[in-house]
Design a binder for these strands. Structure first.
Lengths: 255, 255
DNA sequence: CATGGCAGTCCCGAAAAATGGAACCGGAGT
DNA sequence: ACTCCGGTTCCATTTTTCGGGACTGCCATG
């Protein structure tokens, strides 16, 4: 219960839908006393975590946090490689690509490359998505044991779409398939009309894991194009995997 | 002296050159006692500000900070517009473009669009640059009064390049020129061989200000191309300026 | 022009957390 | 086995934080 956790709680109130916070917003979101919250917000501002949107009394993240966000991205060579690879894939196929990481039971995109095709699909990065309900997420979950997956997901699942696994058993079955195939797919789950394919890669030494992911409009992409994307995605992932010594891919190759 | 300022101090230790921090790094950088720092880092980790690079004892920014960095970018419509505009310019001319904001006496890039031309120049975003020694920075400084500029810059200036203003008087003179012309330029300042042109835009209601900035390799860009870039940049900036009601541009137009 | 919310800040004693010196731990190097 | 070295834990003391309530300034309303 250090003030740090309170500060973090405040920061977690910011979402892509709620870019700025007023004192009363924060109070009602957190249920904390007004006076404490007022002081907390001011302290956070003094420290540089927040800034006041000029001319208003609304707080928003400070530039310090922006800079650190950049640092986060650069801190990992695995991420950098994945970013590179997805950029190549995105340019080659004209579809949007993401790099995502698992955080608890969510995936959050940490990099994205917008497709060039007229039909662009996808969601901005920094957005959180239930891991079990997306190809990216499942490609990462497949690297956990079933027990870990169960621990992460309190029943009942709240599937966002009819194409998502309706319960844990279905999820576990899907993950088994992902492990067998080496990639994960989705069809109109997070976004209607959008399909996704994803391959996860992990670093041997660090245990760090990211997922490479391409999304495309199902209506205009042929089976053969999809297959080409899948092949390219797997190739890129495999290259990174061998480079960083991913034991998971190594095991697959041996089998 | 709240723990928040200490935490912020720790976070400020991260730079593009120092992506991860060990306990002893932090201790020597901050000069704080070991035990306090150890606890602080752990508390920050528990709160989600930091994470341990898996398998090591090195701390790095947590994903929470990454998400907030994204929020920062989206919190401002001015920023969003500028980002759009610079994206257009970058695609059109094939050179790299930035959107930057002033923070104290520094500018920090908050968005960038990499050029498509074979000669790509520029520095990654999230990087801090002395405002007085770049076109972006000067385009923003020109919107301050001379007194404010002086207050921001303790003599003597430490010019990074022979093309930067050597002292405050020279800077003030350059800023006067920027105000007269409505744009700022640089030639081989922050990066050798690259030139930059920048126009700042501010929002009436909020007082928020950003700078749009294009950089290009001086060796391969003709006078006429540069002029075209400048025209386009000014046109984009002016459009945004009228949209958000920038009094500064309004005054220029009236004159 | 009073009046009543509404948003935010200030004050204070009680309670909890931070502080930092020193002791402690475990591993790598000798 | 010894001893740095990086890091953690302990504990008494000092410093913040907490949160209820009073207080201020600001509309909008009667």
């Amino acid at each position: 219960m250090s003030i740090l956790t309170n500060a973090a709680d405040v920061l977690r109130c910011f979402t892509p839908q709620r870019l700025e916070l007023t004192l009363t917003d924060t109070v009602s979101l957190l249920g904390a006393p007004k006076s404490s919250t007022s002081r907390l917000l001011r302290a956070m501002r003094d420290a540089g975590f927040l800034e006041l949107a000029p001319g208003t009394r609304r707080y928003r993240p400070g530039i310090l946090l922006f800079e650190l966000g950049q640092t986060y991205r650069r801190a990992s060579t695995l991420l950098a490689r994945a970013d590179e690879a997805v950029g190549r894939l995105s340019r080659r196929f004209g579809h949007t690509g993401y790099v995502s990481v698992l955080d608890g039971a969510d995936v959050v995109g940490v990099a994205h490359h917008e497709g060039s095709s007229t039909l662009r699909v996808g969601t901005p990065i920094g957005r959180r998505l239930a891991a079990f309900a997306s190809s990216t997420g499942r490609s990462l979950l497949a690297r956990r044991t079933d027990a870990e997956v169960r621990a992460l997901h309190p029943e009942p699942l709240r599937p966002a779409s009819p194409h998502s696994p309706p319960d844990i058993a279905a999820l576990i079955a899907m993950l088994a398939e992902v492990r067998r195939q080496g990639f994960a797919t989705s069809l109109e789950e997070a976004n209607p009309g959008v399909g996704g394919i994803a391959v996860a890669v992990g670093e041997a030494g660090t245990g760090e894991e990211v997922s490479l992911n391409l999304v495309y409009p199902v209506a205009t992409v042929s089976i053969t194009e999809r297959q080409a994307m899948l092949n390219a995605l797997q190739a890129e992932a495999l290259e990174i995997a061998t480079l960083v010594g991913d034991p998971w891919h190594a095991a697959r190759k041996a089998a």
